[in-house]
C-alpha cells in the first residue's frame, strides 16, 4: 500500500467566495450557443415571423385600407411563438434526455442557481432576438405596404408599443417553455404541453359555454398575444373581457416565474 504523502499542492488556486449565479450565467451562455438546436430554432423563428409577415401583407398591398395592418404584418408571431417555446423547452429537457444534467448538477449542485442562470440566458436572448425580430418584421412588412392604402407610419400612435411588447412577448413564451420543461424534464411531453397551452387550450376554451369563455379567455397566452401584436384587440374579443397588452404581459411573466420556481423546487426534491 502506498503511504500517505504530504498534502498535495494544488496547481489551481481556489478563489474566494463560492460558485454562484455569475459563473452559472457565463457557463449557460456557452451551453446555449454550443448546440445546433439553438441555431435551428432561431432560423425557424426568423423564417416564420418575417416570411409569414411578408406573405400576409403582400395581399394587402394592392387592396383597400385595412383597419389593423399591424396585425397582418405580425401574423407570423403566432407561429414564431412555438419556435421560441421549443427553444426554451430544449434548453433544459435536452440535458435530462442526454444525462448532461448530472454533469451540470455536479459542478453546480444548487438547483435554483442552475435554473436562474438558464432563465437569465433564455430571457436575455429571447428579448434581444424578439425585439430585433419585431422591428425587422415591421420594417419589412411596412416596405411591402409602402404606397398602399394600408401603409402605417413608424411614428403612428401605438406602433412603437406593439414593436417593444411583441419582442417581450416572445421572450416570455421562451421562459414559459423553459419553465414547463424544468418541471416535466421530457422534451416531447414538454413541447406537447407548451403547444397545448398555447394552441389547443385556446381552441378548446373558445368552444366552451360563454361564461367559461368570459372567465378564462383573457388568461390564455395566445389571446394575450393577439392583443399584444396588434394596434387594437381583434374583433372577436369585442364581447369578451381582455387584458390590456401590458397587463397581459405581466400575467405571462407571472406564469413564467411560477413555472420556473416550481421546477427549481421540484429539482431539489427529486433524484437526478
Amino acid at each position: 500500500m502506498s503511504t500517505v504523502t504530504a498534502e498535495h499542492q494544488w496547481t489551481i488556486d481556489e478563489p474566494s467566495g463560492r460558485a454562484g449565479l455569475r459563473q452559472a450565467v457565463s457557463a449557460e451562455w456557452t451551453k446555449f450557443w454550443s448546440v445546433r438546436s439553438t441555431s435551428w430554432s432561431l432560423i425557424a423563428l426568423l423564417l416564420a415571423t418575417i416570411g409569414l409577415g411578408i406573405l400576409s401583407t403582400h395581399a394587402l398591398s394592392t387592396g383597400p385600407a385595412t383597419i389593423d395592418p399591424i396585425r397582418r404584418i405580425f401574423v407570423g408571431f403566432n407561429l414564431g411563438q412555438f419556435a421560441i417555446g421549443v427553444l426554451g423547452v430544449l434548453y433544459i429537457s435536452a440535458e435530462y434526455g442526454t444525462g448532461q444534467i448530472r454533469s451540470t448538477l455536479s459542478v453546480m449542485p444548487r438547483r435554483s442557481v442552475v435554473v436562474g442562470a438558464k432563465a437569465i440566458v433564455m430571457g436575455g436572448v429571447g428579448l434581444v432576438v424578439g425585439e430585433v425580430l419585431s422591428f425587422v418584421t415591421f420594417f419589412v412588412g411596412d416596405a411591402v405596404l409602402s404606397g398602399s392604402a394600408s401603409h402605417v407610419a413608424f411614428g403612428a400612435p401605438g406602433v412603437l408599443r406593439v414593436l417593444i411588447e411583441s419582442g417581450l412577448y416572445l421572450a416570455l413564451l421562451g421562459l414559459i417553455g423553459l419553465g414547463i420543461a424544468t418541471i416535466l424534464h421530457n422534451s416531447a411531453g414538454s413541447i406537447a404541453t407548451f403547444a397545448g397551452a398555447v394552441l389547443v387550450l385556446t381552441l378548446l376554451v373558445s368552444a366552451m359555454p360563454t361564461f367559461i369563455i368570459h372567465a378564462v379567455s383573457r388568461f390564455l397566452p395566445a389571446n394575450i398575444g393577439q392583443t399584444v401584436f396588434a394596434l387594437s384587440a381583434p374583433p372577436r374579443f369585442a364581447t369578451i373581457p381582455v387584458f390590456s397588452p401590458l397587463t397581459g404581459l405581466i400575467v405571462l411573466a407571472v406564469y413564467a416565474v411560477v413555472l420556473l420556481a416550481a421546477g427549481s423546487f421540484l429539482m431539489s426534491r427529486r433524484d437526478t
Partner: peptide
Amino acid sequence: LEARAIHPG
C-alpha cells in the same frame, strides 16, 4: 459518472 452524462451535440 456513468459513461455518458454529456450532451452529444
